[in-house]
Design a protein around this nucleic acid. Structure first.
Length: 367
RNA sequence: GGGUAGGUAGGUAAGUGGUUAAAACAGCCGGACUGUAAAUCCGGUGCCUCACGGCUUCGGGGGUUCGAAUCCCUCCCUGCCCA
């Protein structure tokens, strides 16, 4: 994998990331396909929208259908009919999201399957093995995503485990066609974040992620953590802010030097009737749209905005039509990809700051 | 005509003497969601009031009781069965 910065505008930067399955323009946003599927959307549609990389998940695919099955069927790309890059999350987030049904030891994490309660163990070696079986282009180190708030002592122990596991991941990782990223932890403690960044940099990875954010902390803390952590990450490697975020979060993070994002917001919120538009987010189920014959977003040229009215989209949502989930998802994904495209263009022309300001002034007027 | 089951908020439907302005679901009105246990979850929804609080409800009428949607009498209506 190669990463090249094409130009910078302040700390914001624009570049290209080259993987075995193609080139990706940075900064980019990965739509999430946890179970090997973007809920309700085909890979063909993702390509049409302009998505160049998607994210899938180790824990979930290991449980079902099983990473060995996927390997035997030709790998995840073949299995899900997506020939562009895939990043797989390591299962580290499930350490956080499935807190109630897992136990952490220094060796790894014992989960009780959320499907049938069976015990399964995932440690750094298992996570890497699964990700190699899946055949993703970018694998993530198995980390401990600590919750917010966490006391200093706990944050430190999670950080140490994450570093120790990162070393094991690096040693275990063999596939030359797959790159491996380390994940910075440390909750909201400046010295711990810096320590984590240094330790991971010493081990050496193809890219660096900042994890453990957007887990309930105020936005201001997230931005602050980024501000003091990013300077400790190598300039010549991609930086990935995991699980983020809202359009505002993304702009703030790009401004601080982040290149990669992923988040469930565009897809999950779409299914819940929360739609992103250039004029701000809207709840399509609101009764005020009952007879609104205008497009969802007058400034959007996606298939949905070109062909349907808010009144129709509201009707579909309220009526629980399957098409509602599809159209809403399609639009929100398009909105995010368009945002990233505009961000890249603004960096290229050294107008990121004014772009951000203008975008937000319009986006936040209806908030 | 006889028998039987039943009539509860705009809908479906619990509740069979006090803790019931009345469960639950649906509907309607809002909201949340950030490396997806999420097509999920939460709140509101008789009337009046910003609120405290007050007022009127369980087919109609009458009774019993300190107290009734719940017990009794009567009337009305609906479903089913038999003539």
């Amino acid at each position: 994998m190669e990463f090249e910065t094409l130009n910078k505008d302040g700390l914001a930067r624009r570049g290209i990331l080259t993987t075995c399955h193609g080139v990706i323009k940075t900064p980019f946003f990965m739509t999430i396909a946890t179970l090997g599927a973007i809920k309700g959307i085909t890979t063909n549609e993702i390509s049409d929208i302009g998505g160049e990389i998607i994210l899938s998940n180790t824990y979930h695919l290991h449980l079902r259908p099983g990473d060995n099955i996927i390997k035997n069927l030709g790998g995840l790309h073949t299995f899900m009919n997506w020939d562009k890059p895939i990043l797989t999350d390591s299962g580290g987030f499930q350490v956080f999201s499935l807190q109630k049904i897992r136990k952490i030891t220094d060796e790894g994490v014992e989960f009780l399957s959320h499907i049938d309660g069976k015990k399964l163990f995932i440690g750094p070696r298992e996570s890497i093995q699964i990700q190699e079986n899946l055949g993703s282009d970018i694998a993530m180190c198995f980390d401990e995503c600590a919750p917010y708030p966490s006391d200093y002592e706990y944050a430190l122990s999670a950080l140490k485990r994450t570093t120790r596991w990162a070393k094991i991941c690096k040693e275990t990782h063999k596939n030359p066609n797959q790159s491996l990223f380390g994940i910075v932890q440390g909750v909201n403690y400046r010295d711990l974040r810096i320590q984590s960044a240094k330790e991971l940099t010493d081990i050496g990875f193809d890219g660096y992620a900042i994890g453990g954010l957007s887990v309930g902390e105020p936005n201001s803390i997230m931005y602050e953590v980024l501000s003091y952590t990013v300077p400790y990450l190598p300039q010549d490697k991609p930086r990935y802010l995991m699980g983020v975020g809202t359009p505002l979060d993304i702009l703030e993070a790009v401004e601080r030097g982040i290149d990669m994002f992923d988040c469930v917001l565009p897809t999950r919120n779409a299914r819940h009737g929360y739609l992103f538009t250039s004029l701000g987010p809207i709840h399509i189920k609101n009764s005020k749209y009952k007879e609104d014959n205008t497009p969802l977003d007058p400034n959007c040229s996606c298939y949905v905005c070109k062909n349907y009215s808010k009144a129709y989209l509201r009707h579909l949502f309220v009526s629980k039509e399957l098409l509602s989930l599809r159209l809403n998802s399609y639009h929100n994904i398009y909105f995010y990809q368009k945002l990233m495209k505009d961000i890249r263009a603004s960096i290229e022309s050294n107008k990121f700051h004014s772009f951000k300001k203008k975008f937000l002034s319009i986006y936040q007027t209806t908030l």
